[in-house]
């Protein structure tokens, strides 16, 4: 049996954490793009488009992320597509993230007081003009803290990609443990790395929230 020093373990975990970060970034960027599109559909004046977006959101919020990963990985394989763990994890996490961001952002648009709609309407602005000049800029400011806060969920969500064989932080921890048999040390270190990634984001979200409430916009 190979002897592992603490440094070996830490070094390997940190190397694997790179992929946790990359996967999180992919999921977040993809999810934000798709989520933006979904939010626009959800706020559209056409009922079928609204319905489409809301069914999508309900579907992805109402099923476990783990199932979505299984479906993206094994389901795609069953349909004859040869998808790598990378692709499956990226797709599943992107879809998952977009559904939650859509819901967060729709809430932010609806949180802009109705008086703002009325004021722009009596000044002669139509729906698009009100949306663009009055509602969206305010919704955008409201959305920053919860969006940053949600990014923490995305990072932790990437841990599930380990079950389809994607080697990120959690999977690396499992593999190291299989060789070194030091579960407490290893998983404590894994948790510590996640915490080091997530905690600053949580703090930042809290800071943004405080700044927003202090600005008098609400």
């Amino acid at each position: 049996m190979i002897e592992f020093t603490l440094w070996d373990i830490v070094r390997n975990l940190l190397l694997a954490a790179r992929w946790t970060i990359v996967l999180s970034l992919i999921a977040f960027a993809g999810g934000a793009t798709l989520g933006m599109l979904l939010t626009l559909l959800r706020l559209s004046s056409l009922k079928p488009l609204r319905l489409l977006a809301s069914v999508y959101v309900d579907l992805f919020q109402g099923t476990p992320l783990l199932m979505q990963l299984f479906l993206a990985f094994f389901g795609a394989a069953a349909l004859g597509f040869d998808v790598s763990a990378w692709t499956a994890a990226s797709v599943a996490l992107t879809l998952f993230t977009s559904a939650f961001l859509c819901d967060i952002w729709r809430g932010c648009v609806e949180a802009v007081p109705s008086g703002q709609w009325q004021a722009s309407r009596v000044l002669g602005m139509n729906y698009m003009q009100s949306m663009r000049h009055i509602i969206l800029p305010q919704a955008l400011r409201l959305s920053v803290p919860p969006t940053v806060g949600f990014s923490v969920q995305v990072i932790k969500g990437t841990a599930l990609a380990s079950v389809i064989g994607f080697v990120e932080l959690t999977k690396a921890g499992t593999m190291l443990n299989n060789a070194a048999f030091a579960p407490f040390t290893i998983f404590a270190l894994v948790a510590l790395v996640y915490f080091a990634l997530c905690y600053p984001l949580s703090c930042y979200a809290r800071h943004l929230e405080r700044k927003l409430y202090g600005s008098g916009i609400r």
Binding site: G115, A119, P137, Q138
Partner: peptide, 9 residues
């Protein structure tokens, strides 16, 4: 309006 409804941004 009663509540002013100025655009805060």
């Amino acid at each position: 309006f009663q509540s002013f409804n100025l655009f805060p941004h």
